[in-house]
Amino acid sequence: MNLFRFFSRPQSAPAARERLQVLLAHERASTGDVDLINKLRDEILKAISKHMQVDDEKVTIKMERGAQVSTLAVDIEIPFDAGKKAA
């Protein structure tokens, strides 16, 4: 083993601790599928489907769960004639 590489590496355990804290905080807070970010995801999609035929391939959903804040990004392609189709 290359000793220089060995000694110059940062410790990995703090990263593990931090990742677990964030993950477990989210997992404990949610019973089943009903944590807030999942609820928002589902209701946003429901709202969209009221106004247009949702083509799932055109809807991208991204989440990132953080320690202080989480982000939810819903990216929808809305075709010009979307409103008419739903009616």
């Binding site: 990742r19 995801r41 799932d56 391939e57 989440m63 990132e64 769960r65 953080g66």
Partner: peptide, 26 residues
């Protein structure tokens, strides 16, 4: 998900896809 470092970014899962609650691409 943990080993891949994607645990914070899970939106849907295999069961959601099988139950028709989400598209595979999502």
């Amino acid at each position: 998900d943990l080993v891949m470092g994607a645990e914070r970014r899970v939106v849907y899962d295999l069961v959601n896809v099988i139950q028709g609650e989400a598209k595979l691409t999502q």
